[in-house]
Design a protein around this nucleic acid. Structure first.
Lengths: 203, 203
DNA sequence: CAAGCAATCTTGACACCGTCAAGTTATTAC
DNA sequence: GTAATAACTTGACGGTGTCAAGATTGCTTG
């Protein structure tokens, strides 16, 4: 896969690195990504990437950031794409969309919400910002649904948002990590989860 | 920390390894555990551990297994310790117990339900058995609660069990991985989650 | 257009890691 | 007591992230 060098200066190394890294991760998981292999893959020396990313952590943050951007965009489009849908169905669609994203990009999802970055590494400032924006988005929607009376009002918005997010997140993790939840159950699980969250509102 | 060797044969290396490994993990996380440091820590050569565990994966499985045993025992004791409690409160206690366990032993929890073993490594047969038993336990309880009418009957027991587990698991992961859920919110979060799951039953 | 400076990329080195192969020592079984 | 076996050792291999120092190039300013 090593491509022969043409010029001393690569030209657009940063972008090439991100692209190649994303591909490697998609193929073999985060653990398949090493700075050396990545560099070799792009056709530069082992330490060349360090001129564009302080360290591996920063590279991973950049990938996660792109993931958040994708996620936010996909989610933002939903209401506009289905303006006729009533809130409950839209909510279900959102839930399914969330789960499908995690299923389709398990490694990116892992990076976005995993301990690799948040606990072990140290999230970039820009990553912090965009991840917060992602949750904020959810929070606002939960508030809307609470207002519309289809989500419980008995708990603060923040709590409901956290709890519901946890449900989706937990589902995705169980699925992606390969324990307790089977891939075939995905769609049904998503609908069950959505229904259970919504059932809440009935007083 | 290296202790000087006394005899060529250690005597009870397997146990010592497990103990030391658990300690290392508790202190510095799973990533702080290396076979070499572990061996050094116990006072044997680098490859001595390999006579008791096929590889690192098997060691980790053994630790996770012990974690499951602890968890199952703690949970099994609950109903006996509080026989007077009504199911709803018992449920809340269970939820809080679950979360507290994850909070008190984040690294073990990670090992028990994380991809390190289930996705990347390969779970030991005995680990598979005990983890299944753990979930089975939960499943049976959910069934009981469904029977008592304090958990929804609108979805199959398996689905409800998966969804509720996912909620707890997701909460613990967000907390332990350091994203979206703060450690100070723990108790309140647990109660909210328990309440949201139970609110379900109201028809 | 030339000179110098900064950005980019290189090789070399270091300290780790998991684990295989082959040799050594102690314990156990006959 | 001797043979087999389990427990443990050192040596080695290929892999990792990343620091330091040097080479090459492109850009800026005079």
């Amino acid at each position: 896969m090593t491509q022969d060098k043409k010029t001393y200066h690569h030209g657009d190394l940063r972008q090439s690195l991100l692209q190649a890294a994303t591909q490697i991760i998609r193929d073999g998981g985060v653990d398949a990504l090493s700075m050396r292999k990545l560099a070799d893959n792009v056709g530069v020396s082992r330490t060349a990437p360090y001129h564009h990313f302080k360290d591996k952590n920063e590279l991973l943050c950049a990938i996660a950031e792109a993931g958040f951007a994708d996620h936010i965009q996909a989610v933002s489009e939903l209401p506009q794409q289905h303006p006729e849908l009533e809130p409950r169905l839209l909510f279900e669609l959102y839930v399914l969309g969330y789960i499908r994203f995690a299923d389709a990009n398990p490694e990116t999802y892992d990076l976005m919400f995993g301990k690799e970055i948040w606990k072990l590494g140290q999230p970039t400032d820009s990553l912090k910002v965009i991840s917060k924006r992602c949750f904020q988005h959810w929070l606002e929607w939960i508030e809307t649904l609470q207002g519309a009376g289809i989500l419980t009002n008995q708990h603060p918005t923040l709590r409901v948002a956290q709890a519901s997010w946890a449900t989706l997140h937990g589902l995705c993790r169980l699925l992606n990590d390969g324990i307790y939840v089977n891939r075939d159950d995905l769609e049904e699980m998503g609908k069950t989860a959505a229904a259970m969250l919504l059932a809440q509102a009935v007083k």
